[in-house]
Design a binder for these strands. Structure first.
Lengths: 237, 237
DNA sequence: CGCTTAGCGTCTACAGTGTAGGCATCCCTG
DNA sequence: CAGGGATGCCTACACTGTAGACGCTAAGCG
């Protein structure tokens, strides 16, 4: 992955291949994946690269820019290839891909959902906007008018992000506590105030995120196509 | 809101009413609301209270605990009163309440969606778990079996959080850029690569978050009740 | 070939952060 | 009124992001 160096720098050991934005970002991502967001400090990343921390500022103006770069890198792992004529099938597949992406990089998820909140749409890194563009074009190809495509996209993407947040929350439960400890954690809660939650302890343990997402997507798609077919689309029942 | 002080401390001016966890947390929330999450530093909060920063550690063990306290405080603004027999009506109302809550405290939303990711369920502040418990009991009262209630809750809450994230993203667009600037921001994007997005510029401007949420909830509720009515509910085809 | 020039890597330095530990002081309780 | 536990304030430390200046290295030009 690092053969770009035509520098004759390293006669001794070649320890220092010329740096490069991609290298910086990908080791940053690796660091976040391995040790969490807090571990990604300039000094630590510099140490990871065997380089002075200050040098990193040539490839990322800020720490914030670095975080943006990491999210962009992660989102690039998602490829939206329009290989199926049915838009619903496509959306379903993309949803599962996104879920797997999030599970592969759980520590990056806070960035994925948080960074867009601090950056106006027009100024986001292009890699961040590409999925949006691709899904819109997919819907457009399926015959949706622009405004409807936007509606579908919003409902769809919102649902996925919500699901991912849900699932990751429960994942931490499973990782840190086994079932007994979980129940113990819940036992801490006052019994009169949280009867439902405590009764749910056994059910919380077995959580099939994939199935749950798929079911949710089914509901959503069914509802969407029904609502888009009927022009009487007000919210009244 | 601060009459709890029966201290005779202030013969001069009463500048220093005895501190109190609620006071600390609510001024912390005010600070976050006014100037964003980064402004919430121990020193700054101390200065805001006219007190030494170190003293705050009596009321919040960590900065993290302080953040947890703030999210708890915000979530306490949500009251789930079961004042209607139909669970769907209830859920719809709560969804709108939650949306308004997020709009009232947009800077806290990153905490709402992020903090649960770092804290196992059993160890979260009870105020954070109360809405969960109340919604579960609401569903239980509506006749749902525990496992089904959990399913409904997950789909429902996930959808709301997703919508809130969506809407807040677009809100920033509206706040920082007017329509012309927005189009300008989008103009930065390569025309061949982002045709859909650029064509959507006019539609992005008028976004009715309330209507969009309501519609989404309708879809979701319809799908949920349909799927729960049919016992052939597995995801297998 | 020698010189310039622009980039790159490294060092030092500074303001600001969370937080541990140690006093002094207050107020409430007995 | 005396005690005592909680509270308020201060100093200090390790660590963060980042600005600015210094030398080296490698490439372009006469």
């Amino acid at each position: 992955m690092t053969p770009a160096a035509k520098t004759t720098t390293g006669p001794a050991s070649g320890q220092k291949p010329r740096l490069n934005q991609e290298i910086v970002l990908s080791t940053a991502l690796a660091l976040v994946d391995a040790e969490g967001l807090d571990a990604l400090t300039m000094r630590r990343l510099g140490q990871e690269l065997g380089r002075d921390p200050m040098g990193l500022y040539r490839y990322a103006a800020n720490r914030a820019a670095l975080l943006d770069g990491v999210t962009e890198l992660v989102l690039n792992e998602l490829d939206v290839v329009p290989d199926h004529p049915d838009w619903q099938v496509q959306l379903r597949r993309i949803a599962h891909d996104l879920r797997l992406l999030a599970l592969r990089h759980p520590n990056v998820v806070p960035l994925l959902v948080t960074r867009p909140l601090s950056t106006p749409l027009g100024l986001r890194p292009v890699g961040t906007l590409r999925p949006l563009e691709q899904i819109l074009s997919l819907l457009s190809a399926a015959g949706f008018a622009p405004a409807d495509a936007l509606h579908v996209y919003r409902a769809y993407y919102g649902f996925i992000y919500g699901h991912i947040l849900n699932e990751l929350q429960e994942l931490i439960v499973d990782a840190d506590e086994d079932e007994a400890l979980l129940r113990l954690g819940l036992h801490r809660l006052p019994a009169k105030e949280f009867p439902q939650l405590r009764a749910l302890a056994p059910f919380l343990a077995d959580y099939d995120g994939e199935a749950e997402l798929d079911e949710g997507i089914s509901i959503l798609l069914a509802g969407l196509s029904a609502r888009l077919a009927d022009p009487k689309k007000t919210t009244q029942p």
